[in-house]
Design a protein around this nucleic acid. Structure first.
Lengths: 339, 339
DNA sequence: CTGAAAGCGCTAACAT
DNA sequence: ATGTTAGCGCTTTCAG
């Protein structure tokens, strides 16, 4: 049987409003009354009907985190943090998979999702500044992790250009000279791929190294198999690279596999580095060097920011936060022969 | 601005009920009327307020998938399938992380989650038959993937005993004789760990091989680092194993890393096999042999079954489905020296 | 085929 | 400190 406020009110001999106040603490309630109501609640096992509450309040208590791939451990790790933070703030977090699909991202921006939500955290990869600016939906929006800048929304991201510059500088410091980049975006979209490519070029140029176009390998998507295929291509060159930056750790791990299959070794023949710091990279052989964003910080900040927007009040203007990152050298770029 | 049924009704000059019928198709509507209403809907950009609908219908359109680790790629892959299937059936799927915590699992069984849901898919690891039987909540429940049998609920799982028997038989067929199992559950819970251990023992016994107790390594949890620690322990034995079955792929990958760190090789020194067939195992070096459950089937079936229960109608009695699995031999158990 | 109206359970404004 | 009540937006029964 399902008990409602009314049942509690009847049992405790008080009005609906009083029960509601005991439950929500919106108005003070006398100690005696409170106890009686609480007892009725416990005895009858009442829990509020959230649909009714939501209808009345105009809010659902639900926020969504939309990411391009659920399967990517980076996003799984991020989701874990975000879910916890959301729960702490009294919200439930819904995972949404855009599958890196432009239409899906646009639909989300338009608020056209199946379930009503109070706010959206979006990791956009196929929409850019223009589409975000054109948005008319008024559900609060927080952007994470990609390169859509200068829009009137909160945005939490690492500095993609600096991250990839750091990675390449590390390779250069180790004496590598023919450095490849795997995971350029073939089209105009996937903004972060372009930013990471830019960082790669900047690092080369800063070191006075030539940029060989054939060492920039585009990929369709950004998973392990894409990294493997691209690396196989690079190894088939007359002069293969002596180091590789992968767009992310997954791509780098795919590249590592291609290397192994070709009978070459990292870091001896080719040094490898990725970006993301997924746990997998700590257990590969060799372990994978990477640039580690602060996932905890990103996840927590995104949720807190969004909830602040939803609940209104004294919220500063939308702003972009660049969260810190650190270089994590591991075996795949270690001194050759180390291992 | 937010448009409601009333706005559409006014615009189209019809009653609320008619608009509702155009939207839901619950009763037939005249062609003329339908067109007029549809135009109003398009012009004003109406979309139903789901909180109101849910309040009225007594359902939320939300189902939850509760798993012990979001981070485990096996569950991420499963979630991806389940989310898609749910969407196809008009439901939104909520991910819930039990963190393999008994209290959390019990709370879910009691329907004590933050958000109201129409049904629950649970992968229980710390509760057993008794707790499930004691459940009084009437939200439909589908169990997946673990060893809670003979309860009046739908249950989708592989045959854990058979799966691990198959894995060990494979190792034996390759000539291995000192076979270890990593990932025994230290306590009484984590039922599936016990089932897989049983399969391991059955396979040894069927082949007339001795079961060395020191080759059964318990782990606290079931991640990569647990596998690594346990393997390091096994390698320190006077007579280390010549093959290892990991409770799951993650544990096996951790074990593989420990092997590499110890300067030994798979499969030459120790053959390795896991269970789950996560993508990571196709890219490790060596690639990881495994027993592959049909994740697509499990995810789809679980959701379909749950939705059938929710929507009532002609639903057969609760039943257990054992989904198929296949042995996937890869390099980690390949002929020694093969690569 | 269409309309009127009740009411799902709750919160919050208005009374007392 | 507590009670009364309108109404959130929708579905669905009852009338016509």
């Amino acid at each position: 049987m399902v008990v409602s406020l009314k049942d509690i009110a009847a049992r405790a001999g008080v009005s609906l409003a009083t029960v509601s106040n005991v439950v929500n603490g919106y108005r003070p309630v006398g100690e005696q009354t409170r106890r009686r109501v609480q007892r009725a609640i416990d005895e009858l096992g009442y829990s509020p009907n959230l649909s009714a509450r939501h209808l009345r309040r105009g809010r659902t208590g639900l926020i969504a985190l939309a990411v391009p791939e659920l399967n990517n451990p980076y996003f799984a790790e991020l989701a874990e943090v975000a879910i916890r933070q959301a729960a702490e703030l009294g919200y439930t977090l819904l995972m949404e998979n855009t599958a890196a699909d432009r239409a899906t991202e646009l639909a989300l921006l338009r608020d056209a999702q199946r379930h009503p939500i109070d706010g959206l955290i979006l990791s956009p990869v196929r929409v850019g500044r223009a589409e975000v600016l054109a948005r008319t939906a008024d559900t609060p929006l927080v952007l994470i992790g990609e390169g859509v800048y200068d829009v009137p929304h909160d945005h939490i991201a690492i500095d993609n250009v600096a991250a990839s510059r750091t990675a390449v500088a590390h390779l250069i410091a180790l004496g590598r000279r023919r450095i490849a980049f795997i995971g350029a975006s073939p089209g105009d979209d996937r903004h972060s791929a372009q930013l990471r490519l830019r960082g790669y070029r900047e690092a080369l140029s800063a070191a006075g190294l030539p940029a060989y176009p054939q060492l920039v390998a585009p990929t369709e998507r950004f998973g392990r198999r894409d990294g493997r295929r691209a690396m196989a291509g690079l190894l088939a060159l007359d002069e293969p690279p002596d180091a590789v930056l992968g767009y992310n750790d997954l791509v780098a791990i795919g590249a590592l596999r291609a290397l192994t299959e070709a009978g070459r070794r990292a870091p001896d023949d080719v040094a490898l580095i990725g970006i993301d710091d997924i746990e997998e990279g700590r257990f590969s052989s060799p372990t994978l060097s990477t640039v580690a964003p602060d996932k905890d910080e990103i996840g927590r900040l995104a949720v807190r920011r969004l909830v602040a927007r939803i609940e209104g009040g004294e919220v500063p203007d939308p702003f972009t936060v660049q969260t810190p990152f650190v270089l994590v050298p591991r075996e795949s770029t270690g001194p050759a022969g180390g291992g």
